[in-house]
Design a binder for these strands. Structure first.
Lengths: 216, 216
DNA sequence: CCCAAAATGTGAGCCTGACTCATGTTAGTT
DNA sequence: AACTAACATGAGTCAGGCTCACATTTTGGG
């Protein structure tokens, strides 16, 4: 009877085709609006209107506004990981700079082409202080990236690598946001700096794990 | 006499003692509430109530909620820079790891003791996509840190250093947020990783500027 | 084909919170 | 005291998040 009021979650997965399409339309409208008016000025009413769906329908899928944003972030995350996985498989880089190059370039490409990606990428802003540290979007990304990394460069996939990837991800996120804050197309110099940070750190870090190609 | 409705700004600086105290009380109440209920659930009514001030008074000082948060961020920023400047002067470190140590430790100390610091540190969340990239809080921090860094380690204070410091700051911000997301007291391992990232990158970066103490 | 059940869709309206403004009060100055 | 500028107030306006009682569509037997 009473609806699921757990904040920031989905309420009902669409099962029929019609509602599945509406679900995607809502995410698309949300993404467009985020680009147009920004995070703070986003309204659920306008998202619904833009998706040509009633406000009630929106709330059948998402528990609240945060759930809507979260679902968009999840879709972005899946798309990003898919793109990275495809390119890694195709190009099969053998060292860390190779993997860094692919991951950064795909992120940049998505920032330039995917609506709303710049505002929410893999997680809404201000979702830090959740009391349950169980699930954290960036941690999820790190987990998936870690297995991709480990399998491709011969590095041992252990707790140390987990930390290195999480740390690298936070850095990349911050520097790339800066790059796009400075220049809507992404400041090339700062994008290069992002790769540099990751390579400096990971090289340093992985070597100390005794698994790099050039042991000290 | 329409009021200043420029978003995110101050409206009137307090000039008399009474209002100056109220101004600080409002920031204190805001900081406390941010810790208690989080950014999303913050209400201006409750901030005013907590500060024992009418809602009207709050809006005499701040153009809107964002202005309130911004003023708190500015106060945090000034306190941080003051603390770092004092410690740098006292300890006078001669190399990059020395400066990194001081800056990171002071940030950690403030996260542990200053109410609300964990939520807004130097800038509210979600303030990226402002159309005028003129002023950006992290850039301001970077500018001030840069002069401190340059004067103390004999590095040339030029555009390259500017970039290095801005990049380093974004990384530190991200990794330290992660450290405190994982552990309310700040995960020691991640704090150590933060220093490591900064040292790896800055060492790499500064050496290439031909100014480190150990030229290659 | 027909129908009940399940899934889905609707939007007027409730509620809460950001922000205003007409009016009253206090501090500083002469 | 008397005047002015700074300061303080909170009931009221407005907008946006979200609900719920009800309507419509799809599905899967029979």
């Amino acid at each position: 009877m009473n609806q699921d009021r757990t904040p920031g979650t989905l309420r009902r997965q669409p099962v029929q085709k019609r509602s599945a399409e509406r679900f995607q339309r809502l995410l698309d409208a949300c993404a467009e609006l985020l680009d147009e008016v920004g995070y703070a000025a986003l309204t659920t009413k306008e998202v619904a209107r833009r998706a040509e769906v009633s406000i009630g329908t929106l709330y059948q899928f998402f528990s609240d506004q945060e759930g809507l944003i979260g679902a968009l972030a999840t879709r972005n995350l899946e798309a990003f990981l898919e793109r990275v996985a495809v390119r890694l498989e195709r190009e099969n880089p053998q060292d860390i700079p190779g993997v860094v190059e692919v991951a950064v370039e795909e992120y940049v490409a998505m920032r330039r082409t995917v609506p709303g990606f710049g505002v929410v990428d893999f997680g809404a802003v201000g979702r830090d202080h959740t009391l349950d540290p169980a699930l954290d979007n960036n941690t999820a990304v790190a987990g998936r990236l870690r297995s991709l990394t480990a399998s491709l460069s011969g590095v041992r996939d252990d707790a140390e690598l987990e930390i290195a990837v999480r740390v690298a991800l936070e850095c990349a996120d911050g520097v790339l946001r800066l790059a796009f804050r400075t220049d809507p197309q992404g400041d090339p110099q700062l994008i290069a700096e992002c790769k540099r940070v990751l390579n400096s750190y990971l090289n340093d870090r992985i070597r100390s794990l005794g698994a790099g190609r050039e042991a000290h």
